[in-house]
């Protein structure tokens, strides 16, 4: 049986003036997988991700996300995806509860569902005594876990995570990955970028962007084997070194 595609991308390109940020990339992401989207700073990851989230319109190429067309149905796409990034996730001057209510509301949850999810989420994260604290006062690791839980509160088909564990301590990073595994169990596909190469190992498949192209796409073990190396760190290093474009 053909595996169900949650993302299907063909020749996707984005140009800014005469600069080609994303150069005709083609790949599929299958339902239930953890898809690692790697690349050096400036390789085009963020641009590609913004297009897939319907936030930036492509220059050319085709793509469907959660079954919807990237040109004509961006608003539908937005209801079927979750997104969190290290840079922007929650409102610091709203409380934990208010953030959950706000995002749940935006994602279209009804009052009853919202109440239920809010309670469940606060309990599962152990944030009972912080529920009425401003998010700004929480440690980064807690914020990130909360941001992730909020990003999947509406049970999206796919969640996009842009460097979700940047700057987070080793224990919290691992707790964060537990949340990812749980989401996968609940049929949510995960699309994640990271600079931690141990985390690359936790992905089912990895694509590696170099200069706007996908230079490699395979499982971590196949990539290591193909490069004749023992770690993803070395694979990354080998591929990123071939970049011609200065990371400007």
């Amino acid at each position: 049986m053909e595996k169900e595609k949650v993302i299907s991308v063909s020749g996707l390109t984005k140009k800014f003036g005469d600069f080609t940020a994303v150069n005709g990339i083609t790949f599929d992401v299958y339902k239930g997988e953890i898809f690692g989207f790697l690349g050096a700073n400036g390789a085009g990851k963020t641009t590609a991700m913004r297009m897939l989230c319907g936030l930036l319109s492509p220059t050319s190429g085709d793509a469907t996300v959660a079954g919807f067309d990237l040109y004509k149905q961006t608003e539908k796409i937005k209801t079927k995806i979750g997104y969190m990034s290290q840079k922007f996730s929650l409102y610091e001057d709203l409380t934990v509860k208010e953030n959950i209510t706000f995002y749940g509301g935006i994602y279209g949850l009804g009052n009853r569902e919202l109440k239920f999810q809010s309670k469940r989420l606060i309990e599962s994260l152990g944030l009972q005594s912080e529920a009425n604290q401003l998010v700004g006062s929480l440690p980064l690791g807690w914020k990130q876990k909360l941001a992730f839980s909020v990003a999947v509160i509406h049970k999206p088909s796919i969640v996009f995570l842009d460097e979700p564990t940047g700057g987070v301590d080793p224990i919290t990073r691992r707790q964060f990955w537990d949340l990812i595994y749980e989401a996968v169990k609940n049929d949510i596909t995960v699309f994640v970028t990271t600079h931690y190469m141990d985390e690359a190992e936790y992905c089912n498949r990895i694509s590696m962007m170099v200069d706007g192209d996908i230079a490699a796409l395979d499982s971590p073990s196949n990539l290591k084997q193909g490069h004749g190396v023992d770690s993803m760190d070395e694979v990354f290093y080998n591929l990123a070194r071939t970049a011609k474009r200065k990371s400007d």
């Binding site: 940047g166 600079h195 760190d233 290093y237 070194r241």
Partner: peptide, 13 residues
């Protein structure tokens, strides 16, 4: 203070 947070492996090296 955390000069390499958010920086890729090659640049970190």
């Amino acid at each position: 203070d955390e000069p390499t947070t958010g920086v890729d492996t090659v640049s970190r090296k």
